[in-house]
């Protein structure tokens, strides 16, 4: 379980995220949604201890993310930012092998190699594993990054807008793979999403943020209602019944 207690981040006197107090249950997929600048990425990167917390406390599976050594956190939680650019030229497999660093500290065992192969196979990258990242399409590259955090074998996986720059086909593929990671591998996935329909269909819980605060937290069924969504997104949203569940229409 991830708990946030009075977590706050001050960018300036007028721009302030929090205080946020909430709990994210272990297991399944939790989607963070909300308008631009609501603080979704800020909260996610603070949970992933990539951003300093100004006040408050965050614990992941009982570990305080600020006081626990970063090494120990890296075996419990992995986090992937939106933009990844490496100066080194890496193949897919080399990138994924870095996911084992918290466990192997650079000395890969046969067990590590097995986890690496599994993560690569899980994201259907088997044929591409010896390709260099700069020879891949955006979607394939995104999958390679996700494979790296899966190879890290952490119970908690935080992803900041992994569907960015993905077309329809690859976005759906990615969400299906994350769904499988949650169901088959038992990972707890927290994900920042922009598309409320993706969030409703693939996640177990939705955490909605607005103006730096958590405004709603519930199951997709509870969230997919006209007045709730209209309130969160500052736009008139109509929820209709679609062939695979409820759909938000906002245009």
């Amino acid at each position: 379980m991830i708990t946030l207690t009075d977590v706050q981040k001050d960018y300036s006197s007028s721009v302030q995220i929090g205080p946020v107090t909430t709990k994210i249950e272990a297991g399944g997929i939790t989607a963070l949604v909300g308008p631009n600048g609501a603080g979704k990425s800020t909260i996610l990167t603070m949970i992933g201890r990539l951003l300093d917390i100004d006040s408050g406390q965050i614990t992941v599976a009982g570990h305080d993310v600020v006081n626990t050594p970063s090494k120990a956190i890296a075996r419990v939680l992995s986090v992937l930012r939106q933009e990844n650019h490496f100066v080194t030229r890496l193949t897919v497999r080399q990138l994924v092998s870095f996911g084992r660093y918290p466990h192997s500290r650079g000395r890969l065992t046969l067990g590590d190699e097995r986890f690496i192969s599994e993560a690569i196979d899980f994201l259907n990258l088997t044929d591409l594993e010896n390709r260099y990242l700069d020879q891949l399409s955006g979607g394939q590259r995104q999958r390679a990054y996700v494979a790296m955090v899966l190879a890290q074998q952490t119970d908690y996986v935080l992803l900041d807008e992994p569907l960015n720059n993905l077309d329809m086909q690859h976005a759906v593929q990615m969400m299906k793979q994350l769904r499988r990671a949650a169901d088959e591998l038992g990972r707890t996935i927290v994900i920042v999403l922009h598309d409320i329909n993706f969030a409703a269909h693939y996640s177990d819980r939705i955490l909605a943020m607005k103006n730096g605060k958590v405004v709603q937290h519930g199951t997709p069924a509870e969230m997919m209602q006209d007045h709730v969504l209209s309130e969160i997104f500052n736009t008139d949203v109509t929820v209709i019944d679609g062939p695979n569940g409820r759909l938000a229409v906002y245009y």
Partner: peptide, 21 residues
């Protein structure tokens, strides 16, 4: 430190994710 340097070369956020201060 070479293994650590290999990780540092991936940039700040990735290195932090992998447990480096």
């Amino acid at each position: 430190w070479a293994p650590k340097l290999n990780v540092m070369a991936l940039g700040r956020t990735t290195a932090q994710n992998l447990g480096l201060n």
